[in-house]
């Protein structure tokens, strides 16, 4: 293809996106579009799968049978999200094994929030309420993103995430209606998860490298700072409603902006965790790599078995044919 032909294709491609048409896996797409989408969708898939670990940590210790069942179902939903996000990613010409390899080698990233430990039951509430809450704010705009398989996956993911968020908030409500010990547990969880949740919406716009191109492809529809503001404005009244105090002395309603002003985020901490030095980075990777390597003989067996079955079938149909003739 000549350079001019490629330029033409690119122009047509951008026009399709501008017209809100969906790009499908078999359509022509610029290499950069493909790569960016593989990166973002796989990062999202990895986040779902690594995100199973901090909550999975409380399955055996959930305080009631009802909570245990809800938590199991929630973590299972995350596995499901991982599964169809990996599938969406595979339509771009990369295998799940390759994607895992990128995760395990540290080449691919996942949401840094999952590198914090879950130390009390209240963390199950805080994660549902704040982490899933922030995730929804990030993801709702993606239901209209340009890449068809990703947009469709997001519609389902968002529905389930919003259920998880309500469930998390409900855990917090219950704690805040409980004993002093329970209230303290809830407040402590908010204190630990508040700032990492704000960081979850990404670096400030000035520091964000991918934003402009991503906006054009509708991979991103609002800037990180706008999303963060939206999250804060939405969450502060929810905290106040149940008697929780946001751990930010600078938090104040700004009448003029119609938004909350908030304190300085500790970006050093953010970058430290992103670079792999958070409290749980090593443990999370160890668990993922452990499950993958420990499961290799199982996957090999399944493969060998299915090959044997195939062979048997072929032999059977060959001998059947012989009989017939």
């Amino acid at each position: 293809m000549s350079e001019e032909q490629i330029r033409n294709l690119e122009t047509q491609f951008e026009e399709r996106i501008a017209r809100d048409e969906k790009i499908e896996p078999k359509d022509w797409m610029p290499e950069k579009y493909r790569k960016t989408h593989i990166r973002q969708i796989s990062q999202h898939a990895h986040s779902e799968v690594v995100g199973m670990l901090p909550e999975g940590n409380w399955i055996t210790r959930a305080p009631s049978l009802r909570r245990k069942v809800a938590l199991l179902a929630k973590v299972q939903d995350e596995a499901g999200h991982g599964l169809y996000l990996y599938s969406a990613c595979e339509t771009l010409g990369i295998s799940r094994d390759e994607l895992y390899e990128q995760l395990h080698s540290g080449k691919a990233k996942y949401s840094s929030i999952f590198n914090y430990p879950t130390v009390t039951w209240a963390d199950m509430g805080a994660i549902g309420w704040l982490v899933d809450g922030a995730a929804i704010i990030n993801q709702v705009p993606l239901c209209n993103t340009s890449f068809g398989p990703y947009a469709r996956a997001m519609v389902r993911v968002c529905k389930e995430e919003s259920f998880h968020q309500r469930q998390g908030y409900e855990i917090m409500i219950k704690l805040m209606n409980g004993t002093q010990e329970q209230k303290d547990m809830a407040q402590d969880a908010l204190n630990r998860w508040w700032w990492p949740s704000l960081m979850m919406l990404g670096p400030t716009d000035a520091e964000s490298v991918h934003t402009e191109q991503s906006m054009k492809w509708k991979l991103k529809r609002k800037s990180n700072d706008d999303l963060r503001q939206q999250f804060i404005d939405q969450t502060v009244p929810q905290a106040e409603l149940i008697g929780l105090v946001i751990p930010d002395p600078d938090l104040k309603w700004n009448e003029e902006r119609g938004s909350y002003d908030f304190g300085e985020i500790n970006w050093d901490e953010f970058w430290q965790v992103v670079k792999g030095h958070g409290p749980m980075n090593k443990e999370r990777m160890k668990a993922r790599v452990g499950a993958w390597e420990g499961g290799e003989w199982v996957r090999d067996a399944a493969m060998a078995y299915s090959e044997k079955q195939q062979e048997r079938k072929e032999k059977q149909s060959a001998s059947l044919k012989k009989e017939v003739s």
Binding site: M52, K68, V69, L72
Partner: peptide, 25 residues
């Protein structure tokens, strides 16, 4: 339930969690 998140593949992970969910139900 304790195995959730540590299965040999995502599909088996989901299935094992499902069994746990059924049993707790």
């Amino acid at each position: 339930g304790a195995l959730t998140g540590h299965g040999p593949s995502l599909e088996t992970d989901i299935a094992c969690t499902n069994i746990s969910l059924d049993l707790f139900g």
